[in-house]
């Protein structure tokens, strides 16, 4: 930053770039969290959950209810909302998806699509169709970091995502149940043979997937407001998951970040309108060059 004194023009460009990069990374983190829940559920249960974005929306409304309606302190309300989301995810699994075990993929996809419409409609009935502001302790505050002026909300999103990813990594790497979850997603039949309670594992996965979406919703709410259609953001999480290689957890995170940053830089450097399609152009490019996605692997089985 010392060079800024001598070459102000250059540094403004640089700072502009860096600030846009951070806000893009923050948006990317939200995509990443939604994509992460998506990939977790897909890997464990084989279900493509098109309602993941709507789960994020419900999470935001849960947070809003806890903090602004029940007047709980922000952090307690947020934690309560995330826990409620975990229970809600397990409930969806138990009531709507477990009875469908063994049905065709298409039937299950239709159910998750129907679930997304149902969640949107129910949210509209319960909380109303208005757009609501939901302030967090970080709202409208900024932090100055080496000459960069960053929104605290953006920084909070990035920090929260990092913590969540680190937590999930530790869970899957080191705990008995985390390893059992990975094993179940790799070979469900073998998991049955080992006596692993596969149905409970599926329930737990839905709990984690919905809680992750809930965290994304609560973190996004102060930036983008809470409304019934905020779940459409899930449409960006989908390319994020595909970009990273559908079914890869690190891929979902990197994919989300890339899409968030690309969109944000498109605002700065490309003609107006490009930011909306940047995600999809990038997706087309990557899939042309590397059809299995960035982190995807060709799975070969020895028989």
């Amino acid at each position: 930053m010392i060079r800024a004194i001598w070459r102000p023009a250059c540094s403004i460009v640089l700072i502009e770039f860096l600030q846009q990069l951070v806000s893009g990374a923050a948006a990317g983190c939200v995509y990443a969290m939604v994509a992460l829940g998506f990939v977790l559920i897909f890997k464990a249960t084989g279900i493509v959950n098109f309602a993941q974005g709507e789960l994020m929306m419900v999470g935001a409304f849960f947070g809003l209810t806890c903090v602004d309606i029940f007047h709980l302190p922000y952090w307690i309300g947020a934690i309560l909302a995330v826990a409620a989301m975990a229970v809600f995810g397990m409930l969806l699994n138990r009531v709507l998806l477990r009875p469908l075990a063994g049905q065709s993929t298409l039937a299950i996809i239709m159910v998750t699509l129907g679930m997304s419409i149902l969640l949107r409609a129910s949210a509209s009935v319960i909380w109303g169709p208005e757009t609501v502001a939901f302030d967090s302790p970080f709202s409208r505050k900024s932090v100055t970091l080496a000459g960069l002026v960053l929104s605290q909300e953006h920084v909070a999103i990035i920090v929260a995502t990092s913590l969540l990813v680190a937590g999930l990594f530790g869970f899957f790497r080191f705990t008995r149940i985390g390893i059992a979850m990975q094993a179940t997603s790799e070979n469900q039949l073998a998991a049955y043979y080992m006596g692993i309670p596969v149905r409970s594992i599926h329930a737990l996965t839905w709990g984690i997937g919905a809680a992750t979406a809930g965290i994304a919703g609560i973190m996004l709410a102060p930036v983008a407001f809470v409304h019934v259609n905020m779940g459409y953001l899930g449409l960006k999480a989908f390319p994020a998951a595909v970009l990273g290689g559908f079914g890869s957890i690190p891929g979902a995170i990197v994919g989300g970040l890339i899409i968030g940053i690309a969109e944000s830089l498109a605002v700065l450097y490309l003609p107006e309108g490009f930011n909306n399609v940047a995600a999809y152009i990038l997706l087309l490019l990557v899939l042309t060059l590397r059809p299995e996605g960035l982190f995807g692997v060709h799975t070969a089985r020895r028989v």
Binding site: I179, A183, A191, Y193, G195, I196, P197, R301
Partner: peptide, 30 residues
């Protein structure tokens, strides 16, 4: 199946069905 394994029956399936992405030790622990 999990109740049956707990009851004391272990099945070594045809085609072995090991968890190929897990280590040998993790397989045994599972």
């Amino acid at each position: 199946p999990d109740r049956i394994v707990t009851a004391g029956i272990s099945h070594v399936p045809e085609g072995r069905e090991t968890f190929t992405a897990r280590t040998v030790q993790e397989n045994l622990t599972l």
